[in-house]
Write a protein that binds this DNA or RNA. Structure first.
Lengths: 215, 215
DNA sequence: GTGGTTACGAACTAGATAGTTAATTAACGT
DNA sequence: ACGTTAATTAACTATCTAGTTCGTAACCAC
C-alpha cells in the first residue's frame, strides 16, 4: 500500500542534505564572517544535525570553501549568459556596466562572502582548486568590445579589459558592500530605490565617459 | 641616587598604555575581523596584560569601537588638509581623486576595518556618538569644485557631491580592499608598483571624463 | 612619611565552540 | 529475506575565550 517512491519524497537523500547544509551555511557565513559563523547555529537551522556537516564536509573551513565554490560557480554561470555583442561598442559597454550593476544588486550575499574572503587575504580561495581553474568569460567579452570600439574610433583611452572590468566592479561592488558605513557617515542609503536608478545610469556614463577620453 | 624622572621613562603611564592597547588592537582587528580577533592575542603583543584592556575599555566590543573612533578621526584629520581649491575645477577634481587614491593606498588597515564594519552592517559605528557627529569636510569641498566647474561650463553632468565622492571612493577602496580575491581570480595584483601609477591616473580621468559628459 | 587613589599583574572561571564517538536506521543489490 | 553500505542521530569532550577576582605597587597631595 504505502510503497515509497525511489525518487521524490525520500527520508534519506545525500544530495538534498548536502545542498541544505550549503544553503544554510552560506547565509550564516555571509552574515557573521568566517570566525563569527557558528557551526552549531548552522546545524540548528537545518532539518538535520551537526554531525552531517562533518560527515560531508569534514571541517568548518572545508564547509566554508565549499560555500565559496558554489557561490562563485553560480556567478560565473550568469556571466556566460551576457549578450551585448549585437550592440554598438558604446552601447555594449554601457549595457554591460548596467547589467553588472543589476547583478551585484541581486547577489548581496555573494558580495559579503567576497568581502569576508578579502579580509582573510583570499587564503581560502587559494586553497580551492575549483576556484583556481574558474575561467573569466567576461574579460574576453570586454576585450572584444574594446577592440571594436577602438576600430570605430569611439574609444580613445587605452586601458585593458581587466582595468575596465575593475572600474565597473569597483563601482557596483562598493555601492552594495559599503552601503552600511557609507549610510552611517553620509546619511545616504545607496541601495534605496530613490538612488538606485540614478547610480545605475551613472556607472554606464562613467565607463563610457572614461573610454571616450578627451573631447 | 636613582631618582626616577616624573616625565620621560615612567613605569606607570595611563596614556601610553591606552595608546598601546589601541594600536595593537587595531592591527589585530584589521587582520582577523571582529569575531576572529582574540583579546588574549592583543594582550600578548603588549608590554602590559589583558587586565588593562578591561580596565580601560570594559569589553572587547568597546575596545573595537574605540579603535574605529580613533581610525576614523585620524582619517578626517587628513581630509581637512586637502588643498586643491587654488586649481581650476577640472584639475581640482582630478587632483582630489588622485590624493584620495594615495590616501587609500597608505591606509590599508583602515580600509580593512571599514570592510569588517560593513560585514556587521555598521552596528558598531552606529553605537558610537563620536562617529555619528564626525563631519565630512570633503563633501563641501567637492560641492564647491562642482559649482565652480559648472559655472565655467567645464562640467555638464549633473551629479551631486555625494555621488562624486562615492565614485572616487569606490575605485580607490575596491583596489585595496578587493586586491586579494581580484588577484586570485584575474591574476593581477592591483596594488603592485607596475599597476599603481596607471590606476592612479585612471581614477582622475574617470571622474573628469564622467563630469565632462557627452562630447 | 603616610593615606588614598590610580595603575597594574597573575591566576582563575564559566560558558561557548569545533570536532568526535559510537550506536542506529534506511536503502539497495542479490 | 538478508547482508552490506551509506546516511543519520544523540550525547560527549577537549579546548578556547571573554571576562573576573583579588592582591600589589607606583604616584600624589599634604
Amino acid at each position: 500500500m504505502t510503497s515509497q517512491p525511489t525518487t521524490g519524497e525520500r527520508r534519506r537523500d545525500a544530495d538534498r542534505t548536502k545542498a541544505e547544509i550549503l544553503a544554510v551555511a552560506q547565509r550564516e557565513f555571509a552574515r557573521n564572517g568566517y570566525a563569527g559563523a557558528r557551526v552549531d547555529e548552522i546545524a540548528e537551522l537545518m532539518r538535520t544535525t551537526k554531525r552531517m556537516i562533518y560527515y560531508y564536509f569534514g571541517s568548518k573551513e572545508r564547509l566554508y570553501i565549499a560555500v565559496l565554490e558554489k557561490a562563485y560557480t553560480e556567478v560565473r554561470q550568469v556571466e556566460r549568459t551576457l549578450d551585448v555583442e549585437h550592440l554598438a561598442p558604446v552601447e555594449a559597454i554601457r549595457t554591460l556596466a548596467e547589467l553588472t550593476f543589476d547583478h551585484h544588486d541581486a547577489h548581496r550575499e555573494f558580495i559579503k562572502l567576497v568581502s569576508i574572503e578579502n579580509i582573510h587575504q583570499a587564503e581560502h580561495i587559494r586553497k580551492s582548486e575549483v576556484l583556481a581553474n574558474l575561467g573569466t568569460p567576461v574579460l574576453d567579452l570586454i576585450s572584444r568590445i574594446l577592440d571594436a570600439g577602438r576600430a570605430r574610433g569611439d574609444f580613445v583611452t587605452k586601458a585593458d579589459a581587466i582595468d575596465v572590468h575593475m572600474m565597473i566592479s569597483a563601482f557596483c561592488f562598493f555601492r552594495v558592500a559599503n552601503q552600511h558605513t557609507f549610510g552611517a557617515l553620509f546619511g545616504r542609503d545607496m541601495t534605496a530605490p530613490e538612488h538606485r536608478a540614478r547610480l545605475r545610469r551613472m556607472v554606464g556614463e562613467m565607463v563610457v565617459g572614461y573610454l571616450r577620453g578627451d573631447p
